[in-house]
Write a protein that binds this DNA or RNA. Sequence first.
DNA 1: TAAGAGATACTCT
DNA 2: GAGTATCTCTTAA
Length: 188
Amino acid sequence: MILKKEFYERETITVAKQLIGKKLTRKIKNLKLTGIITETEAYRGRDDPASHAATNLTNRNQIMFGPVGMSYVYFTYGMYFMLNVVAKSKKQNAGAVLIRGIYPQDGIKIMIKNRGMKDVNKITNGPGKLTMAMNISMKENNLNLTKKSSIYISEGIIPKKIKKSPRIGITKAIDKKWNFSIMSKDYF
DNA sequence: TAAGAGATACTCT
DNA sequence: GAGTATCTCTTAA
């Protein structure tokens, strides 16, 4: 079951928490790569200084102001792509959830090849790593994740325990615990 | 095993 | 021109 648009049309933080344990699918031609989402972060709009959408509309962040359930891919640190899903309630002007980590399910061999390292526990446990393993780049920006296409998110497992932490790699609003994660042993 | 720094290019001011 | 929602390697203990 692919998650519908309504799933994303809620408070960004709620969506971030509920995306934990869901299944991310990436299709490349006849290849299928999937993984269980293990870590997410919520980024809101004007009320969140750490968010790209904290300032006015720009070329890069405009997707965060647009329709929910779309992908928001951007480039950072000169090397890495980040994968986000637009998610916000009707009251918010903007918002998105950063997918920070997955645990590989299908197509593990391909992901190992894309990453050039063998340890399955380390090939997709970071936002820059998973986009590399799944071959995600700016071409995957602004796609509809609620439809069966080259990327989508569907029902996965019910996580046992979700951990809350401050968000990673930011300097503003570090008091907000909007990072959610599970350990692989907490899947069931 | 932990800590530190370099790589590298795009976006906004 | 400065800063960045990161990763990996190197070094040292």
